[in-house]
């Protein structure tokens, strides 16, 4: 565990709270891609299946393998799952009338199918858990595509949406730093699957980061994108 990893997780956690706050404060989910949020619930569901294993150990008081890191991870995994499902729930119940589905036109198969095929080919072990974990790593890298398409179509984002995108994009960039740090300081062979996917994920936010920093520098309220 290092400062890069902790700040990455906290930035990721912050992204959930920014989004939930924005949706609750504006009582609207305009400009938010339901498809991207749905993909995130799928990402965390496929990635955190080991939760059942850990929780199983806990309720049977088998604390032999439970370390501080396990507790931290378990706590955060439950938080991430709860937050991402809550967001999808909000978008399909209370805020359904304000949904932007008409403009959320990204075809999900364009990311689901390639990620599934890639996970079957390139994985560390050919087991269900490992393939689902790998699928979640690939999917998370491209899950932001529907949101990016919606953002480009809208042509601009209000400040909370841009802070949300900055947090979601920034957390994986910090994970890249975390992997470099671990590679340099621990007998830790970097998981090249997570590294490449993380790099692609961060790169996808590249142009967004550029416009985000331009907005911050120019003190604009809304983020302007070239339409």
């Amino acid at each position: 565990m290092n400062i890069f990893r902790i700040s990455a997780d906290l930035l990721h956690l912050a992204s959930f709270f920014i989004l939930i706050f924005k949706m609750k404060a504006t009582k609207s989910c305009k400009g938010i891609s339901f498809k991207t949020q749905l993909m995130y619930t799928l990402v965390f569901t496929c990635r955190y299946l080991d939760l059942f294993h850990v929780l199983g150990m806990m309720i049977t008081f088998n604390f032999a393998h439970i370390t501080g890191l396990t507790l931290y991870n378990t706590f955060m995994k439950i938080l991430f799952l709860a937050a991402s499902y809550y967001i999808v729930y909000l978008m399909r119940t209370e805020l359904k009338s304000t949904s932007d589905d008409a403009r959320d036109t990204f075809v999900l198969w364009h990311i689901l199918a390639p990620c599934a095929v890639l996970a079957l080919i390139f994985n560390a072990q050919f087991t269900i858990l490992e393939i689902l974990w790998t699928f979640s790593i690939y999917l998370e890298a491209v899950a932001v595509m529907p949101q990016l398409m919606l953002l480009i179509e809208t042509g601009e984002a209000d400040s909370l949406s841009s802070h949300y995108m900055f947090a979601v994009g920034g957390y994986r960039a910090l994970y890249l730093v975390n992997w470099v740090y671990r590679y340099a300081t621990e007998p830790y062979y970097s998981n090249w699957i997570a590294w490449i996917a993380g790099f692609v994920q961060t790169a996808l936010f590249g142009d967004f980061f550029y416009y985000y920093f331009v907005k911050i520098m120019s003190g604009d309220a809304a983020l302007k994108l070239p339409t």
């Binding site: 990893r5 997780d9 990721h12 080991d50 294993h53 890191l69 991870n73 955060m76 995994k77 991430f80 560390a124 072990q125 974990w133 790593i137 994970y175 975390n178 830790y188 062979y189 970097s190 998981n191 699957i193 997570a194």
Partner: peptide
Amino acid sequence: ACLEAGHDEL
């Protein structure tokens, strides 16, 4: 295996 690279992270 859980602590295998990347699996001890979120």
